[in-house]
Computed example of a mutant assay.
Amino acid sequence: MALEIIWSPRALDNFHDIIAYLEETWSEQVTKAFVERTEKLLALIAKHPRIYRQISQKNSVREALITKHNFLIYKIYLDRIALLAVFDTRKHPKKTKIFFKPKR
């Protein structure tokens, strides 16, 4: 059974920013391909949440590559998957917001 996927406000903002960038800089076809690839990735994660690499030893935060320029950060809970951020690898790391804070 597939888990429910919940978008955090940050992940949704990130996703919309990337779509706006693609629409402005590239073509409608590239934008559509990105959205379709993201939808397929989310369907796969919903069915097999542990398929991608775990990036935190303390909690179940994982990352999944969408394209060579974008990856998705998500956290697995018992009954759902929370999308924490969609990260654009072309941005300088110090200029991006922290996408999750480990619990102390």
Rank of each mutant, 00 (worst) to 15 (best):
M1W: 03
A2Q: 13
L3M: 14
L3H: 05
I5A: 11
I6V: 15
W7G: 12
P9M: 06
A11H: 12
A11F: 13
L12D: 14
F15W: 10
F15M: 12
D17G: 09
I18E: 00
I19P: 00
A20D: 06
E23W: 01
E23V: 00
E24R: 15
E24C: 09
E28Y: 11
V30C: 08
V30W: 06
K32E: 15
K32F: 10
A33W: 02
F34S: 14
V35E: 15
E36D: 15
R37W: 00
T38E: 07
T38S: 14
E39D: 10
L41R: 03
L41I: 04
L41S: 02
L42V: 06
L44E: 07
A46G: 03
A46R: 03
K47F: 03
P49Q: 03
P49D: 03
R50G: 09
I51N: 02
Y52F: 14
R53C: 03
Q54P: 02
S56K: 04
N59K: 10
R62T: 04
E63R: 12
E63L: 05
L65E: 04
L65C: 04
L65I: 10
I66P: 00
I66Q: 00
T67D: 02
N70P: 00
L72Y: 01
I73Q: 07
K75L: 06
Y77C: 07
R80P: 02
I81R: 08
A82E: 13
A82N: 10
L83C: 08
L83A: 05
L84V: 10
D88V: 01
R90S: 07
P93H: 05
P93R: 09
K94A: 15
K94S: 14
K95C: 01
K95R: 07
K97P: 04
F99W: 06
P102D: 13
K103V: 10
K103R: 13
R104F: 01
